[in-house]
């Protein structure tokens, strides 16, 4: 709208007009967006609140030292399941991290400058793998490892989880390697470094923080997985003596004990759920911290 002042100069008013359709629409959309954001956060807050209320009260060190209780007694502990979770996820990491990073190195550094047509289908396969339901990973590991070795075991659980972690690690590591500036590669090659020297000594170290973030997120996801574990590691009431026997995990403990009618076992399931959530949260925060430190 044009206005003129006392001297007759014509100018443009820069003031906001609160009743113009544009301002009204903008305000309305801000309200809608805020509402949606709040709605999206409600389930997260509710879950956290409920788990804290039900689980936190049982938290003490004995939980990590004792074995799961028989029905109708003391609350006992999930020491074996806590160790079992670390064990299965540890085995899964040992498998998936080297395979994942090497696949990423192939995709990001080597596939493009050869005439290798496998790049596209490896890329494609990784995407498919990312979309495979976790229970299918479980049945796969059951049909191979469990049937072959004749026993449910931490190793079988680890293998099932490793397949689950693989796509996340490949994706994030590939992106991390691709984000390393080409000028580093040129500088290294210009100094007479071979391709593999350049990748291992310059590109990979520069990408390590971002790769670590991806690994953390993959581990955080594997820690909470239940479906693949039920087919492979199964569960156990006892401490593990080897990795070749049925192994308890926190997620399987929650699954088993949440369904029983005995209050002490239910309470232990709540405590285990709480510890599981804290573990996942911790890994996510660690991943963020590593990302931020890099920037």
């Amino acid at each position: 709208m044009t206005i003129s002042d006392a001297a007759g100069h014509v100018g443009l008013s820069l003031k906001k007009n609160p009743s113009s359709p544009r301002t009204l629409f903008s305000s309305a959309m801000s309200v809608v967006a805020t509402l949606c954001a709040v709605l999206a956060v409600i389930p997260l807050v509710a879950v956290l609140y409920y788990i804290i209320v039900r689980g936190l009260q049982y938290l003490n060190l004995d939980l990590f030292r004792q074995l799961p209780p028989p029905p109708l007694g003391e609350i006992g502990g999930f020491g074996n399941a806590f160790v079992g979770t670390l064990l299965t996820v540890g085995i899964a990491s040992l498998i998936s991290i080297p395979f994942g990073i090497l696949t990423a190195i192939f995709l990001a550094e080597f596939a493009k400058d050869t005439d290798a047509p496998e790049e596209n289908w490896i890329d494609f396969a990784v995407n498919i793998l990312a979309g495979v339901p976790s229970i299918v990973m479980g049945t796969f590991a059951w049909a191979t490892v469990v049937l072959l070795t004749g026993t449910f075991s931490a190793v079988a659980g680890g293998i099932a989880l490793s397949v689950l972690m693989l796509p996340t690690i490949v994706r994030t590591a590939t992106e991390a390697l691709e984000a390393v500036p080409g000028s580093y590669r040129q500088a290294s090659v210009g100094l007479g470094a071979s391709k593999i020297d350049t990748v291992m000594k310059i590109v990979l170290p520069a990408a390590v923080p971002a790769i670590t973030t991806g690994v953390m997120l993959a581990v955080a996801r594997a820690v909470g997985e239940t479906a693949p574990i039920l087919f492979t590691a199964l569960f156990s009431q006892f401490w593990n003596r080897t990795v070749w026997e049925p192994t308890a995990t926190l997620s399987a403990l929650v699954y088993n004990f949440a369904q029983v009618p005995y209050p002490n076992q239910q309470n232990l399931a709540w405590a285990a759920a709480f510890v599981l959530v804290v573990l996942v949260l911790f890994l996510n925060i660690l991943a963020r911290f590593i990302t931020r430190k890099r920037g």
């Binding site: 500036p181 000028s183 580093y184 040129q186 500088a187 290294s188 090659v189 210009g190 100094l191 007479g192 470094a193 000594k201 310059i202 170290p205 520069a206």
Partner: peptide
Amino acid sequence: RRQIGMVFQQPNPFPKTIYDNIAYG
């Protein structure tokens, strides 16, 4: 490339220490 070195348009030191930048080659 070991006989014939190169300096680029954009300075491109490695994200390593000054010492390691020189010692790399």
